[in-house]
Simulated assay, not measured.
Amino acid sequence: MDRETRGGGWVYIMADRYRGTMYVGVTSDMPTRVSQYRAGTGSEFCARYGLNRLVWAEHCGSIDAAIAHEKRIKRWRREWKFGLIEKANPDWDDLLNRVLG
C-alpha cells in the first residue's frame, strides 16, 4: 500500500467483518471518504450493511487510473477480492491509520 495521500486517487475496499460484505470504491480524498462511511453518509449500500472498516487500499497516480482499477476489481470474483485483501491484510484489520500513516 502506498502511503502517499496527495494527488491521484485511491481504490479501496470497505467491509463489515472478516470475509463479510464488501464494497469497492474510488476517491481522491481517503480520510474524508472513510469518515463519511463511518457517519453513515458514504453510500446507502455501506450504511445498510454497516461497512465501516477499510480493509484494502491502493493509491494510483491519477484519478482516471484509479477509476479504471476500481472497475476491474468490481468485475472480479469474490474469492479473488479475498485474496487481494488477505495478501496485504490477512486479519482484515481497519487500515485507515496505516494508509494515512
Results as ranks from 00 to 15, higher is better:
3 R>F: 10
40 G>H: 13
15 A>S: 14
67 I>R: 06
44 E>I: 06
62 S>K: 02
6 R>I: 15
61 G>M: 05
52 N>M: 07
95 L>A: 04
36 Q>A: 11
8 G>Y: 00
47 A>C: 10
68 A>L: 05
78 R>S: 04
61 G>V: 04
9 G>E: 08
97 N>A: 07
16 D>G: 14
19 R>F: 13
50 G>P: 10
62 S>Q: 05
68 A>G: 01
31 P>C: 03
92 W>E: 11
5 T>P: 04
14 M>T: 02
37 Y>T: 07
2 D>I: 08
13 I>G: 09
48 R>K: 15
66 A>C: 03
7 G>K: 14
94 D>Q: 07
76 W>Q: 06
18 Y>T: 15
32 T>S: 12
101 G>Y: 02
59 H>M: 00
39 A>G: 13
32 T>L: 09
97 N>I: 01
38 R>C: 14
7 G>N: 13
92 W>T: 02
13 I>V: 15
3 R>I: 01
61 G>I: 03
2 D>V: 12
62 S>C: 00
21 T>M: 15
45 F>D: 03
37 Y>W: 11
85 I>E: 09
74 K>Y: 03
83 G>Y: 05
24 V>Y: 03
31 P>T: 12
32 T>Y: 07
98 R>M: 02
46 C>L: 07
46 C>R: 03
44 E>G: 09
63 I>E: 02
32 T>K: 11
84 L>H: 11
77 R>M: 05
20 G>Q: 14
65 A>P: 00
35 S>P: 04
89 N>H: 01
55 V>N: 10
